[in-house]
Design a protein around this nucleic acid. Structure first.
Lengths: 146, 146
DNA sequence: CCAATATAGATGCAGTTGCATTCACATGAG
DNA sequence: CTCATGTGAATGCAACTGCATCTATATTGG
């Protein structure tokens, strides 16, 4: 019979809780500022980083850990909102290249202070610099990287 | 202009990643074992802990950090699946008392080894006991407890 | 007691997600 | 070249979530 150590269970439950609470705080803040949800931020940032060549949806989904259909629909919504352009890929008739529109760029820039504000206010007061670094180091072992 | 420390951002992004990866692994394992999703486990456990008196949905939603409508619907589904009973509360005409059915109890018991197995295999190899405890300790400061 | 307000829980609707499948183009073996 | 197989992306459908609202009972102030 498998029996995890108490520390293991404690680490997992506190991880889930922390994630939930922080996520909710961030989504709330974005909503109150009349900005798109957090998932859009991550996508916008990743697309911006891929400038000026743009990025293929299948690369994006790997970096964001989204399922293929999730990526497809997220891009749909962002395109409908005028934040990204999807053009057919020159060199692959099946695929596309995604790029930010100017509005996409400004939207990401508008989201950052809200996002950063929550992170700063909700994380930094609880840790010394060394503790935060240690926390990041430990957590990185769980996610496989990124 | 708000500018979080790099450690803060690193801690947050690795937290999100770790959460996503582990959650997905657990849900996958449960699905492959033909068992209900993880959210049911948490609810079943909390209800079981409240035996024999049962628990009120509004208490449950607070312990599980779910919105009221989320709790209401989760209980709907679990009741439809025959895992819980909802009876009118004796002392409060507005409310109910939730209890496990025998099937609810066995289902929770069936889920645990799958859940525990993933936790053990995906967490314990990466940490010493002290590290796991330290991780839990640091994370607890973020979620406000639980 | 009555009216005003608060709390427990359900629900209609729109938007999102998961799953499975589909379509189109790409690639490699013969 | 041609067929079989693989890969990039979209989509129909059912389930789930968020939001706002609604109903019913409880509580409080007068």
């Amino acid at each position: 019979m498998i029996k995890p150590k108490p520390q293991t269970v404690a680490a997992w439950t506190s991880l889930v809780s922390a994630n939930r609470v922080l996520l909710e705080t961030i989504e709330d803040a974005l909503k109150r500022a009349d900005l798109p949800p957090l998932s859009w931020y991550d996508a916008l940032l990743e697309i911006e980083r891929a400038e000026p060549g743009g990025i293929r949806p299948f690369e994006l989904k790997e970096r964001l850990l989204l399922p293929q259909y999730g990526m497809s629909r997220l891009l749909d919504r962002m395109a409908r909102a005028g934040l990204v352009d999807r053009d057919d890929a020159e060199d692959d008739g099946r695929g596309q290249v995604v790029r930010l529109t100017p509005k996409g760029r400004t939207t990401r820039q508008a989201m950052w202070p809200v996002y950063a504000g929550v992170l700063t206010r909700r994380i930094e007061p609880h840790f010394t610099d060394a503790e935060a670094a240690e926390l990041a180091r430990l957590l990185q072992r769980l996610g496989g990287g990124r």
